[in-house]
């Protein structure tokens, strides 16, 4: 029961002050996370997303079942493990979220503005279809090895731009992604930070998004992860489906190649 979950969390918090060794605190947090694995509410988003995928919707009243996520029209299984990638029909490198918007526009007849208008949900009154669809599609790559292609010149270009963005320092605080994510074993407060410059670090981080965030009661996608990192970097607002968002995703997803995808996950 949820009450049990809450109790586990309390135990973890209560133990923390008595243990000066930081390793033990991290262990307790790891136990808390393990206790959350069973019954991940992300499944609620996966279920809603699957229904949305199959439902006839939009001005053209068709489902997304003919949407080409890179492996052919309608192939969902394993598609996320090979994204972002170059799509000839759009002449652009796209991540999953951008591709979903593309399909909602070209297949279902939505305007781009309509398709993109609620990328990140907020509670019961503002549920995001894009988050639900992303949860469903990503769940169909669980266990599949990351295999992001870099055959097309634009894929290679997105990767290089993504790498540049990773090291781009700006804003009031001079922060870049690299400020927090280029050394092994670092933390902000008690939050462990993945080192995204190593294959192992990128794999561990990238393959566990989307995730249900217990602290928010929401499922969050990788685009959200980037959006909120930039907010904390004191940058202006990252535009959903923008070139910078896709390039950074390309850089990190490609660095995660070889690791089995393991999301939607659950995080603090």
């Amino acid at each position: 029961m949820k009450a049990v979950r809450a109790a586990v969390a309390l135990v973890a918090l209560a133990i923390a002050p008595s243990l000066l060794a930081q390793g033990s605190t991290a262990d307790e947090i790891a136990k808390y996370r393990a206790a959350l694995q069973d019954g991940n509410p992300a499944e609620l988003w996966e279920g809603r997303g699957e229904a949305l995928w199959k439902q006839q919707r939009g001005p053209k009243n068709v489902s997304l079942e003919r949407c080409d996520l890179g492996l052919g029209a309608g192939v969902v299984k394993g598609a996320y493990a090979q994204l972002p990638r170059y799509f000839a029909d759009a002449d652009r490198v796209m991540d999953l979220e951008t591709r979903l918007v593309w399909c909602m526009v070209t297949l279902q007849g939505y305007t781009e503005a309509d398709a993109k208008k609620n990328p990140f949900g907020n509670g019961n009154d503002r549920k995001s279809d894009l988050e639900a669809l992303t949860a469903y599609v990503t769940s169909e790559s669980r266990g599949v090895k990351m295999n992001v292609p870099m055959r097309h010149a634009k894929e290679a270009e997105a990767y290089r731009v993504g790498e540049k963005l990773f090291y781009f320092r700006g804003g009031t605080h001079d922060f870049a992604c690299a400020t927090c994510h280029s050394e092994e074993g670092k933390r902000i407060r008690l939050q462990d930070l993945p080192d995204l410059t190593t294959a192992q670090g990128a794999q561990k981080a990238y393959t566990t998004w989307p995730a249900y965030r217990v602290s928010q009661g929401e499922l969050r996608t990788f685009e959200w992860r980037l959006y909120d990192c930039f907010r904390q970097q004191r940058f202006p607002e990252l535009v959903f489906g923008s070139d910078a968002a896709i390039a950074l995703t390309m850089f990190l997803a490609r660095n995660a190649n070889g690791a089995p995808f393991d999301a939607p996950a659950i995080k603090r």
């Binding site: 731009v161 963005l165 202006p236 607002e237 535009v239 070139d243 910078a244």
Partner: peptide, 12 residues
């Protein structure tokens, strides 16, 4: 390209 991406990807 990075400069162009930055310019097109953020809003105030």
């Amino acid at each position: 390209k990075t400069a162009a991406a930055l310019k097109a990807s953020f809003r105030p």
